[in-house]
Write a protein that binds this DNA or RNA. Sequence first.
DNA 1: CTGAAAGCGCTTACAG
DNA 2: CTGAAAGCGCTTACAG
Lengths: 351, 351
Amino acid sequence: MADVARRAGVSVKTVSNVVNGYPHIRPATKEKVETALTELGYRMNVSARHLRIRRTGLITLAVPELSLPYFAELADAVIREADTHGLTVLIEQTGGRRDRELAVLSGSRRQLTDGVILSPLGLGQADRAAFEVDFPLVLLGERVFGAAADHVTMNNVAAARAATSYLLELGRRRIAVLGPDPADAATGSAGLRLDGYREALDSAGVPFDPALVVPATPWHRSAGSDSLGAFLDGGTPVDAVFAMNDALALGALYALHARGVDVPADVALVGFDDVDDVRYATPTLSSVAPGRDEIARTAVALLRSRLAGDGGPYVRVISEARVVARQSTGSAVEQVISVQPGSQVPADAPV
Amino acid sequence: MADVARRAGVSVKTVSNVVNGYPHIRPATKEKVETALTELGYRMNVSARHLRIRRTGLITLAVPELSLPYFAELADAVIREADTHGLTVLIEQTGGRRDRELAVLSGSRRQLTDGVILSPLGLGQADRAAFEVDFPLVLLGERVFGAAADHVTMNNVAAARAATSYLLELGRRRIAVLGPDPADAATGSAGLRLDGYREALDSAGVPFDPALVVPATPWHRSAGSDSLGAFLDGGTPVDAVFAMNDALALGALYALHARGVDVPADVALVGFDDVDDVRYATPTLSSVAPGRDEIARTAVALLRSRLAGDGGPYVRVISEARVVARQSTGSAVEQVISVQPGSQVPADAPV
DNA sequence: CTGAAAGCGCTTACAG
DNA sequence: CTGAAAGCGCTTACAG
């Protein structure tokens, strides 16, 4: 930069002003500087800039794994959204491991970025204190509520209730629920979605049958296939499956096909997450869309606002969710069956 | 760091040595420093460090989109591999757009990282000059050969030949090839895989029938479904489909099912990439595994070696590929049908 | 509108 | 094995 200044016959301050697009520069000066810039092939040393301005323009997105389509699509959306604001995203894969999630909050890489968006899986309600950090942090998902951080989540109970109600309206009465984890806290996705399932049964006057609860963990396709397969082999009558995510649903579909069960004629199937895949399964899968783009947009917006110095109380933003009907519930064309509105509440509001 | 030094009663040099794990420090000194470090809650300013050592420990991985499972899985593998060497990965999504790929090589973000792994899609053979850059660069894939950069690719011709031969050995004779792009250069994935397909037909003495070439672009599920659907509706007899990637294959499977065509009884199907999904399709999909982990490992190793100052001639590393048989070709259990060995040649060797 | 100069927080020859 | 000091390349009060 000093070389450029010398060549252009100005001070480094002026060069800096030009490089950073500072407005009040005499056109002639600007021109001289720009010529020198290109002649010398100047390239900003960003580390020096970061050192000086005490900010890197990088943010961390920590998710369990990119190989899981839901997180790959979320990462895609967050990267795009950050891009539009001049922010660059560093992705950390935690594998859902508690120690790696903690490392995201305090490890050596922490210092690389200005803030963190974390989708915890290993950390739970008991680890709330770990989220009291001195940098902007946005939590995603349903593992932790009420922490001292901004939080973006979806309306799990309402969405699960809507999906289950939809199956009930189709006349299904023996609805298996695939995915609960007996060890999971009540506030995890599994607990909330199970609540929604039960609420829907209650409203319809259909008794809850524990025999229709099919645990499956982790929420991967293989677990969905294995768990539902074993359940089907057990002979419990069933006419619908509500899977707690799409990976489980795709695994379930595989298990159903393998046993010659027709979907949706014999068993209707609804998943959760609305990942791209479900539109190419045979039959195409009905699913709950959690509002992925809205989640990405909100998470980045919250981080930016904190980065800009917003010191207001932590908030919990709930995204708008939809139930999307496709062939696996007998819908020939894709259609939105119901919309669960989003909202915003204080982060420490009751769930 | 100066504060820590003062508190520990040593110089900043000693603090730096302790923080960076420099070996020859008296244990008592080390202890004193470590105490001061924790008492003061010291956290390294990484920008200052980067400025000083002229390196960030970050590398760029530029792929079309994370929503495409192949690239999500590749990113996963590259992140893991980089991790084991203390490198952090910054992912750029280019959308396969030429301008964005060029921006990866010369845009403002370029200065953030020490080197780049780029999987080009918009840039082609004609843009070879764009790869003459003054930082370590590793190219992935089949869009560009012979550029002045290290290159990791797979044995496309051999792998496509093996996949086609496998279908021929199953007795299939009317093998449609899904994915060629008439506009694509001969050295792109499509051209090379088509070459392999034709070579296999030739060896088997089966005449090449242009009516069995089914163009499809981009290589997404929807294009696979639409293109193969239209082809099937045209009534050309067919008993197998070789799809140029798994997304096309999954789309093809959808189109086949939609028309009541049994896979594999009526039509056998082989995809390419061996993404996770294919093991959960119904039927499970046979596919060509390009050696994803080896590609990730090699790409990172090449970058590290250049970063360490290796000035040797550019190389082209060809990964080991396998044909994996599953239900879509009548294989009840997953099995490796053939292995195409990898190799290493100068980057400017003929393809 | 522009200049001269200090300082961000590290690392590393150079001495000892 | 450790210290004192220079310098990496920027930005920004402070003057003018």
